[in-house]
Every structure is written in structure tokens, then in C-alpha cells.
Design a protein around this nucleic acid. Structure first.
Lengths: 124, 124
DNA sequence: CAGCATCCCAAAAGATACTG
DNA sequence: CAGTATCTTTTGGGATGCTG
């Protein structure tokens, strides 16, 4: 251990926060978890609800989430296939931070956008 | 208004949460805000503290943050240059959601990683 | 010291077509 | 219905070198 400068504030590469951000920092994970917060949902249902996500990407997102123990995938052996996704306990616990984030967004995003436009206006 | 299915849960493309995620979902923004939570900091100081970020990317991150009214950039007209960054009130308010996220990470990330390894083990 | 310009790569994401 | 396979585009991010 070389005692790097970032130690002391928890900024090492295995910092839990970094690991989480790597997982959650993609475009869809948070949205998927939010959608599933209301209860179990089927693949197509999920895709329709989220809007703008391709099947491929949704599949990948769900697989990663399942891999990390945040969602359960249940395939009912029927024709046509019926697959349900639901949050695990761990996944539900993640909803709380996400809700806090959403609250912040709802309260402050307008200010952010406004400032951004002001900023751009000055430069224009 | 086409009354799409995702309306009703707030998943429209201009959903505040989406806007926020687009801004905050990158690799460094959250880390920069966290670092600045302790107080104003200079460019190099920030780069050293965070660890692993290139100058170019840090610059871009800081510019975006300034554009959104989350940080203030103060350049002291001296030679050599001395530039300080600090959070605005808005930026500080963002620390709370971030802290909640970090708390979650610290409490649960081990479970996530463990499950991931179990999952990979089964497939191997 | 701070930051810009340039080049480059890898990964994320999207479109489309096909299958059990 | 719920994927997989393949291809392509986009872009975040890194390395390096230059400048005020």
C-alpha cells in the first residue's frame, strides 16, 4: 500500500461508492429499478413503461441487475414465454437512495436547467 | 400529447430524474462534488484527491458542473494561475442525495459483490 | 498551474433481423 | 413473448503535447 493521497476520504478505486456508480451510472439501471419498485413486471411491460430503451439494452440491464442480486428473474415455462422481473430485498433497499435522488431532481432540476440556459446565453 | 404508457410514473424523456441521471451518471461528477463537499479546492488538488482522472476529463466535468450552477470557478489573476472551485448552494444541496447513495453503497455493496461472484461461479 | 487541442480506443447503446 | 446475434454509431474517457 503506497498511501496515496486519495486515501483518507475514501476515494480508492475499490471505494464502495465507485463500485456503485459503475453499476448504477449507466443509462437505464436506475429507471429499471424505479419501474420495478411498483411491483413485479414482465419484460415487454417494462420496456413499454420505460420508453426509449431497446430490447437488447433492457435485457443486458436486467441480466446485470440479476447478477448483482438486485432483481429476480422468473421464467414461467409456457408458450408464449412469460417472464417476470421483481426486485429482491436488496433491490428494494436501493429504492430509498433512488427516491432521495428523484426528490432532489424534482426540486432542483429546474434551477439547474435555468442556470444552464443562462450560462449558454452569456456565451452566445 | 399522445398519452404514452410511461406517463403516470414520470418516465417521460424530460423527467427530472432522467435529466439528473444524464448529468450525474458519468464517471466523475459525483466524485468531484463529494470532494468539493469539504470546501473549495484548486484544480490540481482536486485531481490528486480524486485519483485516476485525467486533466482533460476533470476540466470537462468541472465546466459542466459550473454550467449547471453547481460549482463556482474562481480564477485569481496571478502567475502561475490559481483557480479555485467550490460548490454553490445548489451544489451543496446535491451532497445530501449523494451521501445517501454513499451510505447505501457502504452498507450493501459487499452483498452485491458477493452475489455477483456466486452468480458467476454457478455459470462457470 | 491550469487548461486546451489533437488523436485514439473501448465500451455503451441503438437498429435490425432472426429464433425457441 | 422474450430473448439472441450481428452490425454500426456514438461518446466517454485517456494519453500526450502545447500554451498563457
Amino acid at each position: 500500500m503506497t498511501d496515496p493521497a486519495w486515501v483518507g476520504d475514501g476515494f480508492d478505486p475499490e471505494c464502495p461508492t465507485r463500485v456503485l456508480l459503475d453499476r448504477v451510472g449507466d443509462k437505464w439501471t436506475v429507471l429499471v429499478v424505479s419501474a420495478l419498485a411498483d411491483g413485479p413486471m414482465r419484460f415487454t411491460q417494462l420496456r413499454d413503461r420505460i420508453g426509449g430503451v431497446s430490447g437488447k439494452v433492457l435485457t443486458a440491464t436486467l441480466r446485470a441487475l440479476a447478477r448483482d442480486g438486485l432483481v429476480i428473474r422468473t421464467a414461467y415455462p409456457s408458450v408464449p414465454p412469460h417472464v417476470e422481473y421483481e426486485l429482491t430485498e436488496l433491490g428494494r433497499s436501493l429504492c430509498e437512495p433512488i427516491d432521495v435522488l428523484r426528490d432532489w431532481a424534482e426540486q432542483h432540476i429546474a434551477a439547474v436547467v435555468a442556470h444552464r440556459e443562462g450560462f449558454d446565453g452569456v456565451s452566445a
